[in-house]
């Protein structure tokens, strides 16, 4: 029973979603959309589980002064800080919304100009407070630069990974190396500096041409093959899960 009920639910929902993919009957779409909404809500509530897991593991390490506990303390501080400022932001947004509603109601009721002017000022102040606060500061001055820094690490890691990986060890590796070098040079303006004047007066840029040829034909062919193979693999995996053929999470 403990195994059969989850398998039945998975199969029922899975088959229904497949049905929704193929038919355009409104009630099927409506039920499927409802199921998707349930899924979204469940996933959103599951964040609590994550927060509890994070707090449990890291708090214990901090209390017991385990190795690297200061990092864990910073992590907990960051989490609590962002949750607090997020809550504060929500409070400010609510105040701004209330002030705007009050102003609209006053205008509609034909109140005295002085009262409307006061409400306009109050609403403006509430909007300004909601727009400029510590949450926005944390988002634009802490989160954004940190994200951009992590992303830009790629530029450095690509250089070191390329230096290490592109070695002509065998025929395949040599082909990869040659293609990589040609694309890297042909893709940037410096590749266009090598020019050949053709007899008909046109200019031919061999490195740019080779780069474009490699990307347009061998690359596109490879991309298509991998994508098609992956799509079929995806169908097989999906059906295995839907029909309960593969259910590692129910084996306990």
């Amino acid at each position: 029973m403990k195994t059969r009920v989850p398998i039945f639910i998975t199969a029922f929902v899975g088959i229904f979603m497949i049905l929704k993919f193929f038919v355009v009957t409104p009630w099927v779409s409506a039920v499927a959309d409802e199921l998707v909404q349930w899924g979204v809500i469940t996933l959103a509530f599951a964040i609590i589980l994550g927060v509890l897991n994070l707090a449990k593991i890291n708090l214990k390490a901090v209390v017991e002064r385990k190795t690297d506990w200061p990092y864990k303390a910073i992590l907990l501080f960051g989490m609590v800080f962002m949750m607090s400022v997020g809550g504060f932001q929500w409070h400010l947004d609510m105040r701004a919304e209330e002030a705007l509603s009050a102003l609209t109601a006053l205008e509609a009721s034909g109140a005295a100009p002085a009262a409307v002017a006061a409400a306009v000022a109050a609403s403006g102040e509430a909007q300004a407070r909601a727009a400029t606060n510590i949450f926005n500061f944390a988002f634009t001055r802490i989160y954004t630069p940190l994200s951009a820094t992590m992303y830009s690490l790629l530029a450095f890691y690509v250089a070191s990974a390329a230096f290490r990986a592109f070695r002509a060890k065998n025929l395949h590796a040599t082909l990869l190396l040659v293609a990589a070098v040609l694309v890297m040079i042909g893709r940037v303006p410096v590749g266009g500096l090598l020019q050949v004047d053709l007899s008909d007066g046109t200019i031919w840029r061999p490195l740019v041409w080779i780069q474009d040829w490699l990307m347009t034909w061998p690359n596109a062919a490879g991309q298509r093959a991998i994508q098609m193979g992956a799509a079929i693999g995806m169908i097989a995996t999906g059906l295995r899960v839907i029909f309960g053929i593969e259910r590692p999470y129910l084996k306990g």
Binding site: A46, I47, I48, L49, G252
Partner: peptide
């Protein structure tokens, strides 16, 4: 993702 964590816990336990 939190849900993925929960399922992974079950999988490793099993």
């Amino acid at each position: 993702r939190s849900v993925v964590l929960t399922i992974c816990e079950e999988v490793v336990k099993a």
